[in-house]
Amino acid sequence: MSFKGSARYSLGVEEELIAVHPRTLLPCGGTETLLERAALAPEHVTGEMTDGVLELRTPVCDDAGEAVGILGALRTELVEVTPLVGAGVHPLARFADVELRGGERYELIGDSLRSLMRQTAHCGVHVHVGMPDGETAVRAANGMRAWVPLLQALGANSPYWYGRDSGLASARSVICNSLPRSGIPRAFADYADYAATVEDLRALGECPDDSYLWWDLRPHPRLGTLEIRALDAQSSLEDLVALVALVHCLAVHEASSPPSRVPGPEVLRELSFRATRDGLDAKLALDGSLRPVREVAYNAVGIASAYAADLGCWEELMLVHRLLERGNGAARQRMNAQEGGLELMLRRLANETANVGATRGELTPVG
């Protein structure tokens, strides 16, 4: 399994958004019709396994601002066709109200995962960082494992599940962790170890290739990237660009630094659960002790800032501070629901995804 390799630490981003009905803002399905009406190139917007979930894709970019600018423009074009909701799960979607799209890949996944893929559509952000070779990608992946809980806490944006507060900051992460080949993978000795693991899984019959690995991060040999998959879908473009910039810088840090000691898989799993449960209120590991997420995040921004100028994302990285000040998506959903109930919360979620109106301002019609 050869690794394509990238000449620079380039960037690509994919985000999954839920198409909703203009009046009710409930999931509306109809992917094929929506794609036909939008008439956007499939390399920019395509369907996902769950009917009504659209995936927006950037080309290869240099920095976070460029990538998220492209996604923002794609959102603007799509909202002319359908309102969108950017969240890890739709807050009011009903249990098992999921239609799976056809095709050999999706049919295999649906058959093997059964009811797990028919409970709730879940949406994430996938950040690809170009890597020069497979060995560097594995070294970066091993190091990035330690950052996954922080990224989950910062990017949590799915507290409501089936119309109720789940008590979690990211219901999506819990859903994802119920799937096989999910969560934070083990550290790999080298690229050959990673390739051998993929081959061992392939031989079992339900993982034809590495695209069926749903870990929180993975080397992506065909694209020549490290793919970080730990973030919920975001409604706010400002949050999105801050998170993408942070991921970009940390991935380059891990790729260009000597290997460091990372907590074992049991500790990482525990920290990951706490991050997805508590979001910005979690306590995570820092220098051998448990510290509040905000302290861990400021430390991460300090490390990332050494790379931000070269990666062209200094201003975008500094927006992590604003995310910490005003709250992440999960915190704002709860704040809006407390102020005006789930209807107001959902309307503001759709408005923010469309980048119209203010999160705390007057309602702006959608659709």
Rank of each mutant, 00 (worst) to 15 (best):
R37T: 10
R37H: 03
A39H: 10
A39W: 03
L40R: 01
A41P: 05
E43G: 02
E43Y: 08
E43I: 03
H44S: 11
T46W: 00
T46S: 15
G47Q: 02
M49A: 15
M49E: 07
T50E: 07
D51F: 03
V53P: 00
V53A: 09
V53L: 13
V53D: 00
L54A: 08
L54F: 09
E55Q: 14
E55I: 12
E55V: 12
L56Y: 09
R57D: 02
T58S: 09
P59H: 10
C61M: 14
D62V: 11
G65C: 06
E66M: 10
E66C: 05
E66F: 01
V68H: 04
L71D: 04
L71Y: 09
L71G: 06
L71Q: 11
G72S: 15
L74P: 00
L74C: 06
R75W: 04
R75Y: 01
R75S: 02
E77S: 15
E80L: 14
T82R: 11
T82V: 14
P83N: 08
V85I: 15
V85P: 02
G86L: 07
G88N: 06
G88M: 09
V89M: 06
V89P: 01
L92R: 14
A93R: 12
R94Y: 00
R94V: 01
R94N: 01
F95I: 00
A96C: 12
A96H: 10
A96G: 03
D97Q: 07
D97S: 13
D97W: 02
V98P: 00
V98I: 14
E99S: 11
E99I: 09
L100R: 03
L100V: 13
R101F: 07
G103F: 02
E104Q: 06
R105M: 03
Y106D: 11
Y106P: 05
Y106F: 15
L108A: 13
G110V: 08
D111F: 08
S112D: 00
S112M: 03
L113V: 04
R114E: 10
M117L: 13
R118H: 03
T120F: 06
A121G: 15
G124K: 02
V125H: 05
V125N: 11
H126E: 05
H126C: 02
H126N: 09
V127C: 05
V127M: 09
G130Q: 12
G130H: 09
M131H: 02
M131N: 08
M131L: 12
M131C: 11
M131A: 10
P132H: 03
P132T: 03
D133R: 13
D133C: 14
G134N: 06
G134V: 05
G134P: 01
A137L: 08
V138C: 04
A140Q: 13
A140M: 13
A141Q: 11
N142M: 14
G143R: 10
G143T: 09
G143Y: 10
A146H: 13
W147N: 02
W147I: 02
V148W: 05
L150W: 08
L151R: 04
